[in-house]
Amino acid sequence: METAHGSVRVLYFARLREAFGTSGETMDLAPGLCTVADLRERLALRGGVWAEELAGSRVVRFAVNQTLCPPAHALSAGDEIAVFPPVTGG
């Protein structure tokens, strides 16, 4: 089985940044961590505030390399993945 290599940069904004207590981290791509949905699941498994924000049906948006992406979007090494609540500008 082919495994993914390399890492991705994960950024958090607004309420999620405050809840998680960090604005970002680097994560290694691994088998089972191939899509945006996998990333959400992986982060939710940390429990606590991570599960509160990400495990349920709460709406969370993802941008990969600064473009909004659906959960099925595939991740690649070097991607910048942003995780944030629905936007409220304007």
């Binding site: 629905p86 936007v87 500008g89």
Partner: peptide, 21 residues
């Protein structure tokens, strides 16, 4: 309003709160 990544946090008499979409 729905696609540009801005977020508002309000200061109210009851404290701070993030604006919900």
């Amino acid at each position: 309003k729905t696609r540009a990544p801005f977020w508002k946090k309000e200061r109210t008499p009851a404290g701070e709160r993030w604006v919900e979409a």
